[in-house]
Amino acid sequence: MTLDEFVSLSSALTGYPASTLKPARDTQMIAQTLYEQLNLPSNNIPSAQLDLLTLVWNQISGTPPPQLEAAVKEKIIDNLAITRLAQNIIYLWFFGIWYDLSKNPASFTSPNIDHVVSPLAYKNGLVWGEMGAHPMGFSTGVFGYWENVPQLPAIN
């Protein structure tokens, strides 16, 4: 999977525009940082699974936007051969975390290879902004901001 494929697939999986995930003027290079997880040998990604996900994505990536989510649902999410890897891409973006592919992230069994990708990956986790908040431990708010209702990001 190339970086461009990773970004466009990530956009379909997360519901965020590719330009948000990888802005033209990219100060923190989060897309690159997360993408590197797919090539990290210690993550033990079965190459057949990664190849299949890439293949399937390339088959459906040209789907017109209104039908794209349905296509992703049918071809990727409902496909037990690749859905777990797709879920991990979602987790990368929402948490900055890579979960052991061989386990369910909810199971908490150890040992595992779950890990936070980097402090910047954590800080840029999408889940925080989605709820109108900031990553715990990194706020750019000013004193007292918490009195005011935040604006939630628009969902298309």
Binding site: P23, T27, Q28, T140
Partner: peptide, 15 residues
Amino acid sequence: PVHPAQSNTGDPFPV
């Protein structure tokens, strides 16, 4: 700030 309107800190660079 690279994206001044994006947040209070405007996406500083270098980080």
